[in-house]
């Protein structure tokens, strides 16, 4: 298909789609309206189970089964990246050379690294209370480790980041989520139903029943997954070299 014909086709189909979407938008409830039946019910359910952060309650209590699916997607994507970005037969691994880093950069990253790591862990731990949670905190914690790559060099990063440990951690935390769900079944309720643990005092770290446990499992899973994912891409960029082109 010639580029010109393709452009015409895109414009024709795009304007049709645009007309349909605009028609759909005009029929939606008005922006900023006061009618949110599902939202109101989610807030009530969250407060009944003493979870201060309603979004965490929706994710890890009311829609905990969906979050299991979401976590599986993340797990599968990491698995896919590990398989796709492996070292092939016609490639070899070069030792990365130590790189020169300016002193202000080095000082700044070494100063920020512990702060960023602590912030990530804080966001995970307070997922059921304040904005944030396992997904967000996990990403912050995982990327904070990579400040070492910016501030020192790749070998320093590899020393604090044994990939095998993080791959095991990824699998362990994914199974921890499922095990927490199965605990509900063994206790005589439903899979991932938040009726197992006492709900605790509102707005304290231990409130919300199984929400903090599932949140912590997700936090660890996301942190490990991001570390493994970034490691595979960094390996491609820094270490793996092609011997001959096909």
């Amino acid at each position: 298909m010639s580029p010109r014909l393709r452009l015409w086709l895109v414009c024709a189909a795009g304007s049709g789609l645009a007309a349909l979407l605009v028609a759909a938008c005009l029929d939606l409830p008005g922006f900023g309206g006061d009618r949110h039946p599902y939202g109101d019910r989610a807030v009530d359910a969250s407060l009944a189970r003493r979870t201060a952060n309603t979004v965490a309650s929706v994710n890890f209590d009311q829609r905990a089964f969906d979050t299991l699916g979401e976590m599986s997607i993340l797990f599968a994507a990491v698995l896919g990246c590990v398989v796709l970005l492996r070292q092939t037969r016609d490639e070899h691994r070069a030792r990365p050379e130590p790189a020169h880093v300016d002193r202000p950069v080095r000082r700044y990253t070494l100063l920020v690294l512990p702060v960023a790591l602590l912030t990530g862990l804080y966001v995970i731990a307070h997922g059921q209370l304040s904005p944030g949670g396992g997904f967000q905190g996990g990403v912050v914690a995982a990327t904070s480790l990579h400040l070492l790559y910016v501030g020192a060099d790749y070998r320093a990063l590899e020393r604090v980041r044994p990939i095998g440990v993080y791959e095991v951690g990824d699998a362990l935390s994914a199974s921890a989520y499922v095990v927490t769900g199965c605990a509900g079944v063994l206790a005589g309720t439903a899979f991932l139903a938040n009726t197992l643990l006492p709900y605790g005092t509102f707005n304290t770290l231990s409130s919300g029943g199984t929400v903090p446990l599932l949140n912590a499992a997700i936090g660890m899973e996301v942190a490990c997954a991001v570390v493994v994912l970034l490691a595979r891409f960094l390996d491609q960029a820094v270490e793996i070299e092609e011997v001959r082109s096909l």
């Binding site: 599902y38 939202g39 989610a42 979004v55 929706v58 979050t67 994507a77 990246c81 595979r232 891409f233």
Partner: peptide, 26 residues
């Protein structure tokens, strides 16, 4: 308060988007 259900959906969306981007880039 704003609707928490769609916020949770947006979070799911971000996670799935990031994983899809990573897989496609690989």
């Amino acid at each position: 308060v704003v609707d928490p259900v769609v916020q949770a959906l947006a979070l799911t969306d971000v996670v799935v988007g990031a994983t899809v981007t990573a897989l496609l880039l690989a």
